[in-house]
Simulated scan of single mutants.
Amino acid sequence: MAGTEPTPALSTRDLTIRFGGHVAVNAVTADFYPGTLTVIVGPNGAGKTTYFNLVSGQLAATSGRVLLRGEDITRAGPARRTRLGIGRAFQLTNLFPHLTVAENVRLAVQSRAGIGMRMLSLWSGHREVIARADHYLERVALAPRRGSYVGTLSHGDQRKLEVAILLALEPDVLMFDEPTAGMSVDEVPVVLDLIHQVKAERKRTVLLVEHKMDVVRALADRIVVLHNGTLVADGQPAEVMRSKIVQEAYLGSPETV
Rank of each mutant, 00 (worst) to 15 (best):
A218H: 04
L10G: 09
G229R: 08
A9L: 11
E178I: 07
G182P: 05
G70E: 08
I245A: 15
F52M: 11
R139I: 06
I130R: 14
V41F: 00
H135M: 07
T36Y: 09
L166T: 14
A218D: 15
P43S: 14
G229F: 08
F32G: 09
V173K: 09
P78W: 09
M213C: 02
E71A: 13
A61Q: 12
G235M: 04
L194E: 15
V23H: 02
Q58M: 15
S253Y: 11
M241P: 00
H126Q: 12
G116N: 10
I195C: 04
I165Q: 15
G21Q: 14
L59W: 01
A131C: 01
V216P: 03
D72S: 07
G20I: 07
V209D: 03
A141E: 14
D193R: 15
N228T: 06
V140T: 03
M117W: 13
R69I: 00
D193K: 15
G20Y: 03
G21F: 05
R132I: 11
Q110K: 05
R112W: 11
P144R: 04
E187C: 03
D14P: 05
Y33H: 13
R222F: 01
D234G: 07
H196L: 04
V105H: 02
A108K: 10
V215D: 00
G116C: 09
G3I: 02
R132V: 11
S111Q: 14
R145W: 13
E201A: 15
G85Y: 03
A141N: 14
L122H: 10
A238K: 13
A200I: 00
A27I: 00
L137I: 01
M183A: 05
N53F: 10
I86S: 04
I17T: 12
F176R: 05
G235P: 04
T93M: 13
L251W: 00
A238H: 13
K203R: 15
L153M: 10
A220V: 04
G70P: 10
A133R: 04
T230R: 14
D31G: 02
R139P: 01
A200S: 15
V109Q: 06
V66I: 12
H22L: 14
E128L: 12
L167R: 03
A61G: 03
L166D: 07
A220H: 05
G85H: 06
V209N: 12
L219P: 00
R242Q: 15
H155P: 01
M241A: 12
L59P: 00
L10C: 06
F96N: 03
K48E: 09
L95M: 03
G3H: 13
P144H: 04
R127N: 07
G85F: 03
R80C: 02
L84Q: 13
A89I: 03
S124K: 13
L37N: 09
E178L: 06
R18V: 01
